[in-house]
């Protein structure tokens, strides 16, 4: 990064935040602070929903995932369009009709106070614990490759997002998200075009995709019914639909975005915007990674993309093992490159036999490359146990720093920070409003002025922001903590969705039955997690279905002695 890059980074981040704070100054009413001024158009909502979901890790890691395992990950998003239609038809009209601030408030309307607190509590536990990761994950990658101090990176980006989220509330969040996502899209499109220009002359786009296909990077869909496969169309459609239903339908950080719409029409169109653009966006990010893979067939990549870790270990090691492996990697890459060039030449000459021969040769050479990479990873693990960082996270940023011109480097690093801040702001805004509406106003102080609750919201938002910064600073000491929080996040979702689906569709079930059924279903999910190894997407399906089935059974038993709570009108 040079001076121009830093000017772009600090200039755009501060300007966007300052503009949002200035534009939303003087908000005194609770509805305006928590739900915005109620004038959001479908485009603002659509971009806001997208920006809240897409964190920095989406943009840093997804190309790395494309580089390593190809396009298959796109299938995980196949359930999203269907889920967003269900939310648009079922969830949204009910939330708007009851004029709720939070999704959990609806559970209070439909069931009772304890079920509302269970929903809000699970959200606060899950998002509150995970609050630091949104900041920590990009900070660790960017500080490592830039040589910045990790703690300073976390504190600066954390305080900036807390400042404008606390000052401007919901409107400031959606206003900043609109400009931040503009920066993100500009950065990604610029990186894509530079990458296309940097491919060797004479190599057509079709050649590039053929090479990627030869290394099994183009397997975008897998219709097999094998449950052991990591990504298939069926896990994507069914598991992905349940995950998207619970995330977009019951996670306050998303619900708050589309409740700010000027009308139900604007909210619906905002959700449909995401239903249409979610899959192409993920496909584009994965394709970027696949093309980086093709680019590195002709340019020697680092043997280990996190070069900071590699250099530190190579200089410390006395046996020179890592440097010897680096030499082996250079030779293996040269052999692979020769085969790939022969393959492209044969393809252009129309010589099918030579093409097949060179393609097989390239595959063999690639196996050798993977072997050297695996040995390098093992040597690094041995030298510094506990550094289980995913090297794929460093692929895209390495490409950017090595092959993009100054100015564009600044734009891309700004895009990563914009993505981190935009999703963090959505989360903090939701944590603050859920704490205010579902806990403070519901349990602690029921009758107070709007101004009082706005101040309370600001205090709670700042509190969660500081928790996030503290957690991110602490996370550096315990990588396993991050793993644990990520797992916790993915195994609560199913049961929360179960609560809402019972509320919408099982009108005979009351609060007591659903409350205890949710706890039993969560215990079942924990037990399965401890004893089985299935894709995390299936925990959501199991948790949700178990919650619904248990509710019906328990209501049947309770129904003999008492009446169920009436459904909301």
């Amino acid at each position: 990064m040079n001076t121009l890059d830093y000017v772009i980074l600090f200039g755009s981040m501060l300007a966007i935040a300052a503009y949002a704070v200035w534009n939303t100054r003087g908000r005194r009413d609770l509805s305006g602070y928590l739900k915005g001024s109620g004038q959001a158009t479908w485009l603002t909502i659509g971009l806001s929903v997208m920006a809240t979901q897409a964190s920095a890790i989406t943009f840093l890691s997804t190309p790395g995932q494309g580089y390593e395992s190809g396009l298959g990950f796109v299938q995980n998003y196949f359930g999203a369009p269907i889920a967003l239609i269900v939310i648009s038809v079922v969830f949204l009209p009910i939330y708007r009709r009851l004029k709720v601030y939070t999704a959990y408030e609806y559970l209070g309307h439909r069931f009772d106070s304890k079920t509302r607190l269970l929903g809000a509590g699970l959200f606060l536990l899950q998002r509150g614990l995970g609050a630091g990761i949104t900041i920590y994950a990009p900070a660790i990658v960017l500080s490592t490759v830039m040589g910045w101090r990790l703690d300073a990176t976390i504190v600066c980006s954390g305080l900036l997002v807390v400042a404008y989220t606390v000052a401007g509330g919901c409107d400031a969040v959606s206003l900043t998200q609109k400009y931040q996502i503009g920066v993100i899209f500009a950065g990604m499109v610029a990186a894509f075009f530079v990458l296309l220009v940097r491919l060797p002359p004479g190599l057509t786009f079709s050649d590039a995709l053929t090479i990627a296909g030869g290394f099994h990077k183009m397997e975008a869909v897998d219709f097999s019914l094998n449950m052991d496969r990591r990504y298939t169309v069926w896990t994507g459609v069914l598991g992905g639909m349940f995950l998207a239903l619970s995330y977009f339908g019951t996670d306050q950080s998303q619900v708050q975005r589309y409740l700010s719409g000027a009308s139900i029409r604007e909210s619906r169109l905002g959700l449909m915007f995401n239903a249409v653009f979610k899959i192409p966006m993920q496909f584009f990010m994965l394709l970027l990674g696949v093309l980086i893979f093709v680019f590195y067939q002709f340019e020697r990549p680092p043997v280990y993309f996190n070069r900071t870790v590699w250099k530190a270990q190579a200089e410390q090691a006395t046996d020179g093992g890592l440097k010897a492996l680096d030499g082996e990697f250079t030779a293996a890459h040269a052999a692979e490159r020769a085969q790939v060039e022969a393959w492209v030449a044969a393809r252009h000459a129309g010589n099918r036999q030579a093409e097949a021969q060179a393609r097989d040769g390239a595959s063999l050479a690639h196996e050798r490359i993977e072997e050297v990479r695996a040995k390098t990873r093992a040597a690094l693990d041995l030298a510094s146990p506990g550094t289980k960082a995913n090297d794929a996270d460093y692929v895209f940023i390495t490409f950017i720093l090595d092959h993009l011109p100054h100015g564009l480097i600044g734009l891309l690093v700004t895009a990563f920070f914009a993505a981190a801040l935009s999703s963090k702001a959505g989360e903090l805004n939701a944590l603050g409003s859920t704490t205010t509406v579902d806990v403070y106003r519901h349990l602690v102080r029921r009758e107070a002025s709007d101004g009082h609750y706005v101040v309370a919201s600001k205090v709670f938002t700042a509190f969660w922001g500081l928790v996030a910064i503290g957690f991110a600073l602490f996370a550096n000491l315990a990588e396993n903590l991050i793993q644990a929080v990520n797992i916790l996040g993915s195994i609560f979702y199913g049961v929360v969705l179960g609560l809402f689906l019972v509320a919408f569709f099982l009108k005979r079930v009351g609060g007591t039955a659903v409350f205890w059924s949710a706890l039993a279903a969560q215990a079942l999910v924990f037990a399965l997690y401890a004893t089985q190894s299935i894709s995390y997407l299936w925990y959501n399906v199991i948790g949700c279905v178990a919650c619904m089935v248990f509710s019906v059974i328990l209501q049947g038993i309770l129904g003999l002695g008492g009446r169920p709570t009436p459904a909301a009108p």
């Binding site: 369009p81 648009s88 183009m218 869909v221 249409v276």
Partner: peptide, 28 residues
Amino acid sequence: KWGGVYGLVIAIFAAWVSLLTLLSLLFR
């Protein structure tokens, strides 16, 4: 009508799955 919007969204989704299937078959 909203039914038309949802139908359109499903059609676009189906088109994407078809395109991705075609890509997988063309470049395998």
